[in-house]
């Protein structure tokens, strides 16, 4: 028995992840994005909402690295502050989806039978709506605001997590250690929380990462349609939306927020795919 193997499985997963260059690039992008969001007040060179009409449509220069928009606001600063809003929406809505999805999926997978049927058919109904349309309908109903955006995106992400969790719980419940736990007198809740869910974690982690990308796209999409974050708050989709009118004369106003969305989404997807391979090495073979 080697020293190496005395570590937890997470260490082995990290070693595998480190070898995957694309995943590490993804991780780097995600870290950069999160850092921008957290340290926005300290690193953004200008006030993201301060207008200066003299600087309208300013091309990128030394003072304004990515130029200025139609109101002369610094685009780089707006993108950095935009990360903050996007991350808030992503994290909150994914937490909503995780809490509801994992609970429903675990209940269905563990107890099975009619409860499972009922939950999963309801999830099928939610899945039958095109995701964007569902979020759109919810926001249209509740009115556009960051809170409603989070609720809408959260709800439409629930079925993914419920499905993934249910599948994992079904597979894990078949293990003898679950029966063994019941034999020593663990309650159902304790069996789920201590024995089943910890072993169902890896598909959930992967799904969470990949979902972050989808959620960002949806939030920007809703912003672009005017149902997301409202101006003058700097959100990437909203920025893109107002910039589209000047696409011919000042393309940089649209290009940079568009790039920000694209790179961040790619980052989360790279990381998610890498995690998939690192956490389930057998799937790759």
């Amino acid at each position: 028995m080697t020293k190496e193997s005395t570590k937890r499985p997470a260490h082995a997963a990290w070693r595998r992840l480190k070898k995957n260059k694309i995943a590490i690039a993804g991780l780097f992008i995600v870290i950069l994005y999160v850092a921008c969001a957290i340290f926005a007040p300290y690193i953004s060179p200008h006030d993201p909402t301060k207008q200066s009409l003299a600087d309208s449509f300013l091309m990128p220069n030394a003072e304004h690295l990515l130029g200025c928009d139609e109101f002369g606001r610094d685009i780089l600063s707006r993108i950095i502050w935009g990360a903050r809003i996007s991350l808030l929406i992503q994290v909150s809505s994914v937490i909503v989806a995780l809490l509801v999805g994992i609970s429903l999926g675990a209940l269905g997978g563990y107890y099975g039978g009619k409860l499972d049927e009922l939950i999963m058919r309801f999830m099928d109904i939610l899945l039958a709506f095109p995701g964007m349309l569902l979020a759109l309908a919810i926001v249209a109903m509740l009115g556009p605001s960051v809170r409603n955006l989070i609720v809408a995106i959260g709800i439409y992400s629930v079925p993914q997590f419920a499905r993934i969790t249910r599948g994992a719980v079904l597979a894990i419940s078949a293990n003898e250690y679950v029966l063994g736990a019941k034999a020593i007198g663990e309650s159902d809740l304790s069996v789920i929380v201590r024995y089943v869910l910890p072993n169902a974690l890896s598909p959930i982690i992967v799904q969470t990462t990949l979902r972050m990308a989808t959620v960002l796209l949806t939030a920007s999409g809703l912003g672009f349609l005017g149902l997301g974050v409202q101006p003058p708050n700097p959100e990437w989709g909203t920025m893109l939306s107002s910039a589209r009118m000047y696409l011919r004369s000042a393309p940089h106003v649209a290009i940079f927020p568009g790039l920000a969305i694209m790179i961040t989404v790619l980052g989360f997807n790279f990381l998610g795919d890498g995690l998939q391979d690192a956490l389930n090495p057998r799937l790759k073979e």
Partner: peptide, 15 residues
């Protein structure tokens, strides 16, 4: 009353 299972690779919680 307790039980010992057949497959020791599935009967212990890996976590």
């Amino acid at each position: 009353a307790q039980i010992v299972f057949q497959n020791p690779f599935a009967s212990l919680n890996p976590r």
